[in-house]
Design a protein around this nucleic acid. Structure first.
Lengths: 214, 214
DNA sequence: TGACAATCCTAATGCCATTAGGTTTTCCTC
DNA sequence: GAGGAAAACCTAATGGCATTAGGATTGTCA
């Protein structure tokens, strides 16, 4: 009836198609490899001719970018809701919960993880907009480590550049090895991800308050 | 004169061409991306027509495989000669020297590193032959850690599956982050690789003899 | 009903890897 | 030094890809 309503209807249909394209793209990347995504294959699976996809995405890279953003938002929110669901205010524990949620999401969304955390697609560089949620995640991490420092659970070195670099490298290192060498398992049972509590403990040992600095 | 000599001449010329193709391939991967290697571009740069390359390699994947093997041999040998050049028999120190040599090679051969340690090229799986030097490297690592255990420098847990997984994950984690986030620097100055001694120390702290087990 | 815009199509371009089949070059044997 | 085999290289062709141009169809509203 009203213009707004019609546009809304059309807009919703359009969004539906966009989502379907992205879903199919993920599905194909799962079987063919992230960098081997073919627009023609996507079009075939959606039931379109390849050029029609350009009504929804300006290029193949735009699809990668949309998936990057989708993934970054998902993993950030997965981390946040895991922390919110936990009934604790212990900053250290919240940090650990976040890492576990992160790891679990990565194992369950390997295609998106690869896009997000490896530089695996030749010409692809995420747009600032798509990258923003990743920065949120890094800030969240800093926030909880700072909280642990303030609570006297960690030495202040833990939130230094070196501390952050160590934290992300060690956790991402386990994830990376897991995804590369033994992808078909769960976060809890993986030969590498299983060691996540160990590396977190190593980190805490290094940045114990009152002594652990250098 | 003799058949052997002539075949040798031809064989040497052939090997020269093969090497040139591989060199050009690395060069192009540096500028265009590892997964974006184009045989046509290689052929152009070598001064051939694309189909002529098939005289030397059965497919594009065969080129990747040759590069994989080349890289694996290079990095293994770089590690070994660094250890041989060191004037020590201290197993722990030899382990550290190996890691440093490994890291340095990776920073100086980023294209090959990516091929070797990330799963970045869609259809590519290294042949067992190409993969063998990587196994050598893992055995070398095990050997030196075992040596440190035998010398009473480390707890035996260091050579357990978990210990090895931890060691490789932490070192590869730093390298990975360095290559992905700040590739244009040296091993010594990189924001992440600079922390290599720190993570090695963390490892040694965890597997100190006489106490450090669990 | 007519018009506008969204949606989808076919046709075409220029890239790619790879195969088929022929020509030139190299080099050893006689 | 002539002949011939094998190596090295070529052109032509196939079928795939991403992307662009431009036309047809369809839905939606005045």
């Amino acid at each position: 009836m009203s213009t707004a309503q019609e546009l809304d209807r059309r807009g919703r249909r359009r969004q539906q198609t966009i989502d379907e394209i992205l879903d199919v793209a993920v599905e194909l990347m799962q079987t063919e490899g992230v960098a081997a995504l073919s627009l023609s294959a996507v079009a075939r699976k959606v039931g379109m001719q390849p050029p029609s996809l350009y009504q929804y995405f300006a290029s193949k890279m735009a699809i990668y970018d949309a998936l990057f953003q989708r993934g970054a938002e998902q993993v950030r929110d997965a981390q946040r809701s895991a922390r919110a669901a936990a009934g604790t205010t212990d900053q250290l524990e919240l940090g650990m919960i976040g890492v576990a949620a992160f790891g679990k999401w990565c194992m369950e969304n390997q295609v998106l993880s690869q896009l997000l955390f490896w530089r695996t697609v030749p010409g692809f560089e995420p747009s600032p907009e798509a990258f923003a949620p990743s920065l949120d995640m890094l800030n969240d991490l800093r926030h909880y480590l700072q909280g642990a420092v303030d609570a006297g659970q960690l030495d202040s070195g833990a939130v230094s550049d070196d501390g952050i670099a160590l934290f992300t490298s060690m956790t991402a290192g386990l994830l990376s090895q897991q995804l590369a060498n033994e992808p078909d398992t769960t976060y809890e049972e993986g030969r590498f991800t299983r060691l996540m509590p160990v590396v977190l403990d190593m980190f805490y040992q290094r940045y114990k308050p009152t002594r652990g600095k250098k």
